[in-house]
Amino acid sequence: MANSVYQINKGINKSIEFKGLKAQYIWYLGAGILALMIVFAALFIIGVNQYICMGIILCCGSALVFKVYEMSRKYGEHGMMKTMARRSIPKVVKCNSRKLFMKHV
């Protein structure tokens, strides 16, 4: 087997990038693959046919990889956190009383 050399860091003070995945998306892909391995083991132990297990895991795995790469391309390093924070800000603040703005002397 030949030794493979992978470049991980792209420079000083830049986030980690590996094969096009940026920052936290590397961890998302790793966690997804680990979850798929556990699902495969559970299906195999239950007694599902080996080829059916592999088909299910291959379909789910390819969907996982495509979705994680799509999120990495769409949101970038911090974009998903910014989008989630933007959703939590209310569009309108409604106040039916002026008591909130009146000073009590």
Score class of each variant (00 low, 15 high):
residue 63 A to F: 04
residue 52 I to S: 10
residue 26 I to N: 00
residue 26 I to R: 00
residue 24 Q to I: 02
residue 10 K to T: 05
residue 15 S to M: 07
residue 89 I to A: 08
residue 9 N to F: 13
residue 13 N to C: 07
residue 39 V to R: 11
residue 26 I to A: 00
residue 15 S to Q: 07
residue 19 K to V: 04
residue 89 I to L: 15
residue 79 G to T: 03
residue 99 K to G: 15
residue 4 S to R: 13
residue 69 Y to R: 04
residue 57 I to E: 11
residue 61 G to H: 09
residue 71 M to H: 05
residue 44 F to L: 07
residue 16 I to K: 02
residue 48 V to Q: 12
residue 28 Y to Q: 03
residue 105 V to G: 12
residue 11 G to D: 06
residue 69 Y to K: 08
residue 14 K to Y: 06
residue 25 Y to E: 00
residue 101 F to V: 10
residue 9 N to W: 05
residue 11 G to K: 10
residue 39 V to P: 03
residue 88 S to V: 06
residue 91 K to S: 08
residue 57 I to D: 11
residue 40 F to A: 13
residue 102 M to Y: 09
residue 15 S to I: 01
residue 62 S to W: 10
residue 52 I to N: 11
residue 20 G to K: 03
residue 38 I to P: 00
residue 51 Y to L: 15
residue 88 S to T: 11
residue 42 A to P: 02
residue 42 A to H: 05
residue 105 V to Q: 02
residue 10 K to S: 11
residue 42 A to Y: 04
residue 66 F to T: 12
residue 85 A to C: 06
residue 15 S to P: 08
residue 82 K to W: 07
residue 89 I to R: 15
residue 28 Y to M: 04
residue 2 A to M: 04
residue 36 L to Y: 02
residue 102 M to Q: 13
residue 68 V to Q: 00
residue 88 S to G: 05
residue 39 V to G: 06
residue 35 A to E: 09
residue 1 M to R: 11
residue 86 R to K: 15
residue 59 C to R: 09
residue 57 I to W: 05
